[in-house]
Nucleic acid binder design. Structure first.
Length: 307
RNA sequence: CGCGGGGUGGAGCAGUUGGUAGCUCGUCGGGCUCAUAACCCGGAGGCCGAAGGUUCAAGUCCUUCCCCCGCAA
């Protein structure tokens, strides 16, 4: 099949690789423009661009699409059968959605209509869903509202955001390869808008722990935000990131955020409900460390309140 | 040249205004104990990230490089 692929981050790499291996003719890869990022402000390619270059596929990086006649003309002349989109990072205008004969299809990291939006994978963990998955849909003008074409599921289990992300990325690639050939005949299933939820884009600030929450939810947040943006709280002026924790059912008789115990391999913190037992921590400028190790060279003041 | 923290015995950390390194844990040996992630006694283990330089003398000052990490993007 003749396809144009649009995607940007790591999540969008496996589908690209899979289509290439499956023998689909990928005319162009469209991805976000190079941008400065990371320490030292160096210019970095998007992961998808890096892979496309490796595979020898022409890359397009339009700043904007809507009024970009040159870009629109280029993809029109490419005459793709379909445009496949995975975490591209920009809303596509109707002119693009209607351009290919088979339309545009999108790989989304949740079981729609649950968790429409930018961060479905993390949302599934935070909300405590036992099951999540991948949905491939026909793209419509609304945000992740198109008719569903195929689904694949997996368990959330005790997975971190990274683990679930990687798993769903490859699951999405598989599902895409299965779905593409059937595209001309497959019948989409409309989403039930009444059941839809929205998973907004995550910001650094979302990692700031609110200890008045249920310890169980905080633990899920810690997992979901591993490795980014990380989940943190402040001890005095110092930021502490938490990477692993358990939940104790009993409730502490102390205000939320109070450190009630710190010994051996754990630091216990009072929450709105339950106690958060932190077992892996990271201080600024330091690496992730098991609390067991951390406590050997650092002292934790019992009764201190984290904010 | 975006801002900043750090690389010290196996692990996590201290090391004052430069004078050949210390703590906690672990480890090994011994002791106590019904027992212990407990306690007591004793021991091993470090070319202090790398390469230069200053100095009578550098972990501690200067230069360059390598690596790790936080912020910001």
């Amino acid at each position: 099949m003749r396809v144009i692929y649009m995607g940007t981050p790591d999540f969008a790499v496996p589908p690209l690789t899979a289509m290439h291996q499956a023998g689909h003719e990928i005319v162009y890869v469209v991805t976000q423009p190079d941008a400065v990022s990371g320490r030292g402000k160096k210019v970095h390619f998007s992961p998808v661009k890096a892979k496309a270059l490796e595979l020898g596929i022409p890359v397009l990086q339009p700043e904007k699409i809507r009024k970009n006649q040159e870009f629109l003309e280029t993809i029109r002349q490419a005459k793709p059968d379909v445009i496949v989109v995975a975490a591209y990072g920009k809303i596509l205008p109707k002119t693009v959605l209607e351009l290919p004969p088979l339309g545009c299809i999108n790989i989304h990291g949740s079981l729609l209509p649950r968790f429409r939006g930018a961060a479905p994978i993390q949302a599934a963990i935070i909300e405590g869903d036992e099951e999540t998955g991948i949905t491939i849909m026909k793209m419509a003008e609304g945000l992740d509202t198109g008719d569903m074409l195929a689904k694949a599921t997996t368990l959330t289990d005790g997975k971190t955001g990274q683990q679930l992300h990687d798993e769903l990325a490859s699951l999405g690639a598989e599902l895409l390869i299965q779905t593409l050939p059937a595209l001309p005949t497959i019948k989409g299933q409309p989403q039930d808008d009444a059941l839809s939820t929205y998973a907004p884009m995550i910001s650094k600030q979302d990692g700031h722990i609110d200890f008045s929450e249920d310890a169980a939810r905080i633990e899920r947040r810690i997992r979901a935000f591993d490795p980014w943006p990380g989940t943190f709280a402040y001890a005095k002026e110092k930021m502490l990131k938490f990477w692993k924790a358990e939940v104790l059912d009993r409730t502490a008789e102390a205000p939320a955020g109070t450190i009630v115990e710190a010994k051996n391999d754990h630091i216990d913190i009072a929450c709105g409900k339950g106690i958060l037992r932190v077992t892996e921590i990271q201080a600024p400028g330091k690496k992730r460390t098991a609390v067991k190790e951390y406590l050997k060279g650092n002292s934790i003041e019992i009764g201190m309140v984290l904010g």
